[in-house]
Design a protein around this nucleic acid. Structure first.
Lengths: 363, 363
DNA sequence: TATACCACAGAAACCGGTTACTGTCAATAC
DNA sequence: GTATTGACAGTAACCGGTTTCTGTGGTATA
């Protein structure tokens, strides 16, 4: 790449000091309009763009935000990232992607990342085991937002959904279809969202006057294989004990359940209704298409990024450097607590063919 | 965040000059082992990590590579990005994600990005219309790798597949199943890959002694709606003129074709065999599951990143700063031209239920 | 006309590193 | 015993900007 122009080159060409060039570029008021014009002409003529690194060093802050994410081929992550990108595009910031693979404890990596002072803020997507570590950084003043963490609520700014209400709504939907024996395949108990969903499920049953039946509660790992395993347990006994509907803790596990049903020729939804949670991209294409609770992942990414940037510099919203037009969010009023640091985004039920009215079963 | 330690602080504490501290940190040989030890102790005691920005400014290069990608919710992009992350993790580099949305011509944005000198190299995923613009940068010395660009081959380092051979293989597969009337729904003609796939298809037919029939060649836009449109045209006429198999230019269009078949109660594969191209994640879950030509997207991301980093600094491979273990690529010998700057990665056919042997049709 | 003030631009310090150059001291050569 | 050399650490320049401080000239005020 050809040698890059520096502010000194511009200064020389314009016959002014580099200080003046800097002031012109940063739109300081204290520059004579005539001079400003002359300098700007030269800047534009040569397509001069100041070196970011130098600017960042001088300013003591970067225009980078770190995004800590699970592997991008996980479900939902691309959608979240899409929302992140949509918002970032309206700002002068860029995203540094830290993709963490698997269970390895990345806290040392995290330490270095943050110690280097490369990013001015961090967006942590499903931080999982890292969240307590992140807490430390937040205490120390690092601008930080979590998306859908799976621990207890903390004071850390957070964007996610109301798992309790969503699960409550999902279960109620099955109740309204006439189901009474409703099983639940929950996620791992160490995930806060799994517990919340369980509670929503239980609350709905209790309100309907249906006693909780331990046999109808199983625990999986939030991935298809465990869904299979649980489904096999549910269908292992004699047909009279089967549930007529299953509320599965997430879509991934529901896929496993659907597979078992297909293998065993158990009709869905005629013999058993199945409802998932998440609305992953695949869910609309299952056999049969999966009824599920939709999580607005893209919106979550968008809102989380917005929140983070407001923490980093509250002014940026109105700066002229805005790269492009603002994203026309279709959900201006749906985000409760717009000014709080915990944003809950509404979910909604997507009814597809995997769920249907209860039919008394022919034994 | 608490005030960060600088190299000066360390120098003061160790009673040496900052130059010495710098030399210790960069493992220069010309430091007395005893002194080195003393400095390192202090560095470790305080968890000192040098400020990246300052380092980058002094060195005149950053440890960032830019990844120019379509929106992450596009098919295949997450898989490619996953491969990118896998490789990046083995290096001291990080990824800056430039997600470009839609058709907007981003060349001005690109100009600024590169003028700022923020990234030391660029990985362009499906650059499309931007590729000629990128060419200019490459000429000027910017380390650049393209993944699966859709223009004519250039001298720009590139990672992709052999579209001609893959299409040839796909078509041959249908021929071997006994099909003779094989339609092709191609992608837009301005995509080089679409042309290559067309040629592969034609070549296979010609070699089988089957004349090309213009009615059996349609053109779509690489997305589902156009697949629907083309399918409707194919099935518009009297049943005798239908193809017994359709080679669809990509999976997205094949989804549209499957929809039309389902609506019209045309049995797949009994009445018509369908084969796609790409093997997107959804394809295994179609009704029926789609036979398709698998593109190893993750491997493409991995190889492209490797190629790019070798261009940027050929030494990095053996540096001790390697963040983690090397990625154990399962395909060490499958990449032809390992030292060239055009890497073709092998595809393979994935046979699922949407394709089957030719049955003479009952009229 | 002298003084105060203001507008504006340049000089220089600074951000936090790296590195060319310089200087010191001890070991080796003559 | 002096000259030469080499090992090593410190000084200072440098990367390319931003910003504080200083200085100049013009205008308003007394």
């Amino acid at each position: 790449m050809q040698k890059k122009l520096t502010i000194n080159d511009i200064a020389r060409m314009a016959q002014v000091s580099k200080a003046t060039v800097s002031r012109v570029l940063n739109r300081h008021a204290s520059v004579d309009p005539v001079l400003r014009e002359r300098v700007m002409d030269i800047v534009q003529e040569h397509n001069f763009v100041p070196n970011v690194t130098a600017t960042e060093l001088a300013n003591g802050r970067t225009r980078l935000i770190g995004v800590l994410a699970p592997p991008l081929n996980w479900p939902a992550i691309p959608e979240i990232m899409h929302g992140v990108s949509e918002y970032i595009e309206t700002t002068p910031y860029e995203v540094v992607l830290y993709s963490m693979n698997l269970e390895r404890n990345h806290s040392d990596v995290l330490d270095r990342i943050l110690a280097m002072r490369m990013v001015s803020g961090l967006l942590a997507i499903l931080p999982g085991g890292l969240s307590s570590h992140l807490d430390t950084f937040f205490q120390q003043g690092l601008p930080l937002v979590m998306i859908d963490d799976q621990k207890e609520p903390t004071h850390i700014p957070w964007v996610g959904i109301d798992n309790f209400s969503s699960a409550y709504e999902a279960t109620n939907y099955l109740l309204q279809l006439g189901h009474r024996r409703i099983a639940h395949i929950m996620g791992p108990r160490h995930y806060y969202c799994a517990l919340q969903r369980l509670e929503g499920y239980q609350q709905a049953l209790l309100e309907a006057g249906i006693p909780l039946e331990p046999d109808l509660l199983l625990q999986g790992e939030f991935e298809p294989a465990s869904g299979r395993r649980c489904a096999e347990m549910l269908f292992a006994q004699d047909r009279g004990t089967w549930p007529s509907a299953i509320f599965v803790g997430n879509d991934q596990m529901a896929y496993g359940v659907l597979e078992v049903a297909e293998e065993r020729k158990i009709q869905v939804p005629e013999a058993v209704s199945i409802i998932g949670f998440d609305d992953n991209l695949l869910s609309a294409h299952m056999r049969p298409p999966l009824t599920t609770m939709h999580q607005p992942f893209m919106e979550m990414g968008y809102q989380a990024t917005k929140l983070l940037l407001n923490m980093i510099d509250p002014e940026h919203v109105h700066k002229p450097e805005q790269k492009w037009q603002a994203f026309s969010s279709s959900l201006p009023d749906t985000t409760k607590n717009d000014h709080s640091s915990r944003i809950q985004i509404p979910t909604h039920l997507v009814t597809r063919t995997s769920s249907g009215a209860f039919h008394p079963r022919l034994l």
